[in-house]
Write a protein that binds this DNA or RNA. Structure first.
Lengths: 234, 234
DNA sequence: AGGAATTTGTGCGTATGTATC
DNA sequence: AGATACATACGCACAAATTCC
């Protein structure tokens, strides 16, 4: 008998194990599950309980249920984790994002930048973004100068927003996205400079705010033939 | 005894009557339903069947279920404006969005569409979107077939999502956006067909979900030289 | 404060309908 | 047409959360 004290209901426990099986590759796309009665017997639960599990997986889009035929796995992409603040993925979907810091400097905010923050200065961070190793975008990030005096390259090991939280105590509460057409800036690495005849890169402007106001404004130039914008709202 | 030949399952029949009661104002916001056993008795159905009905309403976001307390109608009129679900504006900023229905039909979902919903069929709605009177985008919307049997052009006077809420009892809880490059479909009005040499239109794919799963998937083709994507996250 | 009553949540087992193979 | 498999529906028992006295 399955214990259920202080833990998830049985039907959700089963759901979680199945989700793990799917993400671990033990259950692959298109795979047909055993008949519900058999499966319930193997698991030692009632058919009705198993059906609640399967309904839950169907709701999450992980399972296709065909009356008279069977239950079929729908392999699905990633759970959101590190990707929470990164809204680009490969055209083909997914891809692991990495960031390579090109430069960090503290400068007076330029005129073109929309007004934000309390300081006249800002930290200018330029990064090359790769998705699955492929150069996909460049970023120019302006963090308001009031949050810290200096940022070192070593501080931004991988996740900029992890640094914001753990070192600056800065939580992102709001965000605003714009997508426009535009030209890549002159400091762009050669690897990213567009070839003649290709589509004009997009500019994805994102401003991050906490409750006290806007803390950061970033511009991302990405090549629409390589990456696409994705946004998942809770 | 309720007949169920050739028609909806009992638990969905009850759901439909409750949705009508809500949209007609016979059940108002915050109202507490009778205990499940009493309600099932009045309706002449089993508690388990009624619970399936209530789960369905909860899925659509119409009902709040609190263990130990009761079931409460949740029919709040949306505080967000008409623009809440539209993420395009003029390049210059702003602009009043309107929608013109081009066609509505009920069809078997095509293969290319990502799997969503519980029905094999869907409602296919094609619209021309104008911003400040200027043709800016075309939409193809697929609403899962399980929510209603038929949609008439007259039903969608102005806001599609108002129709969803008031007529289908469907509340949108989650959304997912994608932006890709793509070609306009062949049914696009002449007013929107791209001229030679202009940038390729963008495809903005949006899926809308309530708590139980995805209800609608829409594709929006917009001209990036006319409109831009904007998203303001709370 | 505390315990009893109320109400929904979970789980089981069974019977029958209906779509698919 | 028969077998298989999922969908619906019923009823019951107990657990957990809330409410009320």
């Amino acid at each position: 008998m399955r214990s259920s004290k202080g833990s998830l209901p049985v039907y959700l426990q089963i759901a979680e194990t199945l989700v793990r099986d799917i993400t671990a590759g033990r259950l692959i796309d298109g795979e047909k599950l055993p008949p519900e009665r058999d499966m319930a017997n193997e698991l030692g639960i009632a058919v009705g309980t198993l059906r609640k599990t399967l309904a839950e997986l169907h709701n999450r889009g992980l399972l296709e249920r065909i009356q008279g035929s069977g239950n079929y796995i729908r392999a699905v992409t990633d759970p959101q984790s590190v990707y929470a603040m990164f809204r680009l993925e490969l055209i083909s979907g997914g891809g692991f994002p990495t960031a390579e810091v090109l430069s960090i400097s503290r400068e007076v905010k330029p005129e073109e930048l929309p007004p934000f923050g309390t300081s006249k200065e800002g930290h200018r961070i330029r990064r090359l973004r790769r998705i699955a190793g492929k150069a996909a975008a460049i970023e120019e990030i302006w963090l308001d100068g009031s949050y810290t005096n200096e940022i070192e390259v070593g501080d931004l090991s991988e996740s900029l927003y992890l640094y914001y939280r753990t070192r600056l105590g800065l939580w992102i509460a709001k965000a605003e996205d714009h997508i426009d057409l535009g030209h890549v800036p002159d400091w762009s690495p050669d690897t990213f400079n567009p070839k003649c005849g290709e589509p004009i890169p997009h500019v994805l402007r994102i401003s991050y705010s906490h409750e006290g106001g806007t803390a950061e404004i970033s511009h991302t130039w990405y090549d629409p033939s390589v990456a696409r914008y994705v946004n998942r709202l809770r």
